[in-house]
Design a protein around this nucleic acid. Sequence first.
DNA 1: ATGAAAGCGCTAACAA
DNA 2: TTGTTAGCGCTTTCAT
Lengths: 367, 367
Amino acid sequence: MARSMHVRRPATLASLAAELGVSRTTVSNAYNRPDQLSPELRRRVLETARRLGYPGPDPVARSLRTRKAGAVGLLLTENLSYAFRDPAAIGFLEGLALACEDAGQGLLLVPANPEREDVAAVHRAGVDGFVVYSVPDDDPHLAAVLERPVPTVVCDQPDIDNVDRVGIDDQAAMHSLAQHLITLGHRRVGVVCMRLARDRNDGFVTPDRQASAHFHVQRARLAGLAQAFGSVGVDWGSIPVVERFDHTTASGASAAAQVLDRDPQITALVCTSDILALGALGEAQRRGLRVPQDLTVTGFDGIREAEQSGLTTVRQPVLEKGRAAGKLLLDSAERSRPRSVTLATELIHGTTAAPPRGTAEERWFGP
Amino acid sequence: MARSMHVRRPATLASLAAELGVSRTTVSNAYNRPDQLSPELRRRVLETARRLGYPGPDPVARSLRTRKAGAVGLLLTENLSYAFRDPAAIGFLEGLALACEDAGQGLLLVPANPEREDVAAVHRAGVDGFVVYSVPDDDPHLAAVLERPVPTVVCDQPDIDNVDRVGIDDQAAMHSLAQHLITLGHRRVGVVCMRLARDRNDGFVTPDRQASAHFHVQRARLAGLAQAFGSVGVDWGSIPVVERFDHTTASGASAAAQVLDRDPQITALVCTSDILALGALGEAQRRGLRVPQDLTVTGFDGIREAEQSGLTTVRQPVLEKGRAAGKLLLDSAERSRPRSVTLATELIHGTTAAPPRGTAEERWFGP
DNA sequence: ATGAAAGCGCTAACAA
DNA sequence: TTGTTAGCGCTTTCAT
């Protein structure tokens, strides 16, 4: 297969028009409005274009003129490549990609490194709108996005003035999971959660930090737990809650260890994500704790790996979330803005939750 | 969190300059070259910008002027969302994202639906270069990319004039896997392969179609097999080769069934991808065939799921491939083009390959 | 069916 | 340090 040689842009629409002795309009029409042109002339234009190595109208110049980039920007909290390591994020991406595909729009992954506060990439992104996926509410990248005069949809985020939103009711979902554990008889529990703010804090979390977490999702899930357990008389302040910056099974394992070391008497370990829960499961096994007989472990998200392990968790429709975000953004019918979509979740009764040892409940539910 | 209201772009660099009574250059410098400006003036500019709701220089206009889009385009053979369902593609994407991130470049997923021959998305993409991942060599999207006057890197593709390339030696890798099977004693084998061309052909494949496959990767892998088995006297034309358009475990299962129905005597089933092999494993189980005692099954890629199943396969460094592609593209040092990177592969001796039943080899290797 | 004129919003020499 | 001058390459009324 051969390729024509051209290092520098060899021809422009204007030079092509000059060569042909026609106006720029005509050449433009040859590409964009074939019907505005005699077929014969169009053929001549296209042929001359080929001969001159004219690659067709420059997309950037066209974008400037038409005020349309033909792409949607995606802002992620994490290193760009993280999106491809977290199953939940992958599901979200797939859904979003689906929506973009349907609309013939590109999907631009914006490199927003949370370490550097380099907002330039947001400014540089030539897109018609942004989707923001689960970033801390004080993220400078988010602020930069909101300053751009393009429509935006935020995911897993609290309401923002005049901005569309899609998400789930994290607090209610976690509340119902907690309720389930309470019904089983659990009162003395431990918690493993994801990053609560931009600073790294691998360790125990004060109630204060819980309440003021900058990641909406984590704050809401913890609030759901605190509320449910608080309402049956548990002193939430005394419950060990351990935070991890990195979202990996290894983090889940080490966090679980930290909780279990602090209070070996806990009967249940609630994790705010499946990934963390999977790690916790590993740690339990390492310690010879049988799940669920000796220890109940729960997750959140409903990723496939969790399902395969029989994890008790909350399933959320990640793909749908992505698709909804895309649809919302691309559905430019400027109806009642801002719009808000809250998707349903489902409590998954897996095999990793059971009544605590030696309780009356255990006899009812079987050992 | 509040957001300023502006439906239409409210201000431009020019209007801001006018308001301030300074030149456009000065405003531009305030954003792009802070050092070319007295701090005081800069402060005034930025403050007035905020007051007027000026969101900073328009990225598209800037791109037009600077001839830099700050993004890399990715062209995939499949529906855009497919990339997020195939583990190998995900690994590639992760690697590519890593490289982009390092360079502060965005990654634009170009919606190239293989069904429609709609090349417009390629023309519309405002990018500084393209990475093309495993498309058929006659794909019109590929042709469109090659016509764009930007650098391009192709993956898993035969050499193209003047275009950088990264890949593995598919033929050699498959040859060595075949050699392994031959050593074990297999002669009567069946093959399950991925899509060989743009048309759907779910069924048996003629030798002709094998040799003229438009997907380089599949063609090379089949060639490696044919060569290895041919050299020990196997009549490759009599070997059942079944193709599947969709790349799923379900496809692998049904293709395996088709092969086994055609020739129940085969001792080994060679699949050209792990996904297909995983499906084949399921089908074998369904038929009560023990692997590897009754049937040997092999894959290709080395995805995690394969590793977990103990699949005998060829591991290729998908993440590295993505990263190498990105580096090649972004490393604009215009050295000796075209450059070509061939990464190493590794034969994984899993637990799904053993000598055929009742052979001398079986006695040597154990049952 | 084709052309002329008027920018889209910005940056980069080069001057002052 | 700041301003002037020229476009980057294209599309789009509005005429003809």
